[in-house]
Simulated scan of single mutants.
Amino acid sequence: MPKWLRKSLLVLVTIATFGLVTPQALLTDSPNEDKQAKRDTYEANPSINEDYFETQVFSDREQFINEMVRAAEEHSFAKFGTRIKPVIQDEFKDVILPNMEKAIAEVTSHYPDENLNQLIVSEVPSGGVSERIFHIMDNQTKKDVIRFHVRRDHPPQEDYVFNFHYHTSHDHFQTHHDLGSINWAKNTPPKWMS
């Protein structure tokens, strides 16, 4: 349903019932729009392509890590969207991305070089307010190895902060491994991928 029509219906129902009834279905985004947003992200960023990693053969560990860092940057920028990216991209490249590279190198150090080709980027960044940036998974077992997330924190009386962290399969994704934080401002940040 087009956004303008949904908003119009919401206003009409609210006015007709003197504000006593608010149709919840009109307030939430439909799941089809979410799927369309993911599809649009793939079309806008053709380099974010999971099939690429399934066919890629890495000659050494350094090439693998460089390719994963490139994918991390692309997925992160896709998640930031056009409203957040211009504000935080420089600090992200300087602070967070090098820490992501270290995390990828550390976690994948448990994999023999010949098994690196089994590791792929598994997911598209999620929009809205969810945390997922991307996951690296073992293509044979279809299980995640490392999950990269960003959380929006708002401590009382302070600015909003983007907290970047990752989880690993070694501790069943329980521990937050900190990658760093980036300050936003007092104003509420826009939704991811907006």
Results as ranks from 00 to 15, higher is better:
143 K>P: 03
82 T>W: 12
117 N>E: 05
147 R>G: 00
162 F>R: 03
106 E>Y: 13
156 P>M: 02
166 Y>K: 04
10 L>Y: 02
184 W>A: 03
144 D>C: 10
155 P>H: 08
132 R>H: 14
68 M>H: 00
36 Q>H: 10
52 Y>I: 09
51 D>E: 15
122 S>R: 09
15 I>L: 13
151 R>K: 15
113 D>E: 11
111 Y>F: 15
46 P>Q: 02
49 N>A: 08
91 E>W: 00
78 A>F: 01
6 R>K: 14
92 F>G: 07
193 M>R: 07
126 S>V: 13
28 T>Q: 14
27 L>M: 12
80 F>R: 05
185 A>Q: 12
62 E>R: 13
126 S>T: 15
63 Q>V: 11
36 Q>W: 10
97 L>F: 06
157 Q>K: 15
156 P>D: 10
57 V>G: 09
75 H>I: 07
95 V>T: 14
158 E>R: 13
187 N>H: 10
42 Y>E: 11
29 D>M: 10
112 P>R: 11
123 E>V: 11
78 A>H: 02
104 I>D: 06
50 E>D: 09
106 E>K: 15
177 H>V: 03
112 P>V: 02
50 E>N: 10
155 P>Q: 00
190 P>F: 03
13 V>H: 03
138 D>S: 01
109 S>V: 03
153 D>Y: 07
23 P>S: 01
103 A>L: 02
137 M>L: 11
5 L>W: 04
181 S>G: 07
143 K>H: 09
163 N>Q: 11
12 L>W: 04
148 F>Y: 01
6 R>I: 02
107 V>F: 08
2 P>G: 14
102 K>W: 10
30 S>G: 12
105 A>T: 14
144 D>E: 14
166 Y>E: 03
88 I>W: 05
171 D>H: 05
111 Y>P: 05
108 T>W: 03
